[in-house]
Simulated scan of single mutants.
Amino acid sequence: MKYRSKLSIIPVALAALIAVPAAAQSEPGPYVGVSGGVSLPGNSTNEGELDSDVPATNDFAAIPAGAELQWVTDFDDGYTIAGQVGYAFENGIRIEAEGVYSRYDVGSHRDLQIGGANIGGVDSAILTRTAASPTNATVGEVLADGRGDVRTYGLFANVYYDFETGSNFRPYVGAGIGYQMIDVDYQPSGLAVADDDDGAITYQLMAGASFEVSSGVELFGQYTYRQMTDEADIPLTLLPGSLEVESQQSLVTAGVRIRF
């Protein structure tokens, strides 16, 4: 991913929010909120390379340092929780600090390539450097049993605009930027492949609606798209190398907001 091109989205989105004409809104002031819901992660095309040679065995040739690695990881749906502290202004603008956490499991890995060659049909001993055997599973079979999980947690600064409708119902849009850590645990078929974390600046775009159920108390539903501006650099435990792991999520959440 290109850091500058993705980061440039944020000032454009914020400028669009601030440019919306001011309108009469609910009472200004501070608020707190909590929310939770479903995380819908995008697949990750994991890419990396070997830092040193993998020695030859009786059954397999050596794999040289610098050989490129690539495979795709499919994720299951997960969950997310978040907490917010913010301030609402009279003109419909809200500013907010938000802490977030999400978790989703690995569904499967597929299409492993080493040095540009797909080795899905090769004996899995090519990775473990054990003896080849007709009874061994193939690389593709090992990877298909995904296992493992990914956890993300971060802190964001958000800006929202609440549209005045003349009723207790208010749609809104927003954008935010912050820093997110991603903790990656890949264990296909119980084989330890990678288990580490990394972080990067991350942006998010939001749209939702709130409904004031009583004075100062609002229920809200929200869609969020969140993406790291750079891949996480995760060292491998099975092979001498590292892996760049992507992180992008669609989040569908609901929560409660209390104004003071």
Rank of each mutant, 00 (worst) to 15 (best):
R4S: 15
R4P: 09
I10R: 03
L14F: 10
I18E: 13
I18V: 15
I18N: 13
A19K: 06
A19N: 08
A23C: 06
S26L: 14
P30H: 08
V32I: 14
G33S: 07
G33Q: 08
S35T: 07
S35Y: 03
G36C: 09
N43K: 12
N43Y: 06
N43M: 03
S52Y: 08
P64F: 14
E68Q: 13
Q70D: 00
V72W: 02
T73G: 00
D76E: 11
Y79I: 14
A88H: 07
A88V: 15
F89W: 08
I93P: 02
V106H: 01
V106D: 00
V106P: 00
L112H: 06
L112P: 06
I119G: 01
D123C: 01
S124R: 05
I126K: 01
A132F: 12
A132N: 05
S133G: 03
S133D: 08
E141I: 14
L143W: 00
G148D: 06
R151F: 03
F156K: 05
Y160S: 01
Y160K: 02
Y161T: 06
F169Q: 04
F169I: 15
R170E: 08
R170D: 09
R170L: 04
Y172F: 15
V173W: 05
G176V: 03
M181P: 03
D185E: 09
Q187R: 14
S189H: 05
G190N: 02
A194I: 09
A194P: 10
D195F: 02
M206V: 15
V213S: 11
S214P: 04
P235T: 14
L238Y: 09
L239G: 00
L239Y: 02
P240G: 13
S242T: 14
S242H: 08
L243I: 13
V245Q: 02
S247L: 05
Q248S: 13
S250F: 05
T253M: 14
V256M: 15
R259H: 14
F260D: 00
F260A: 10
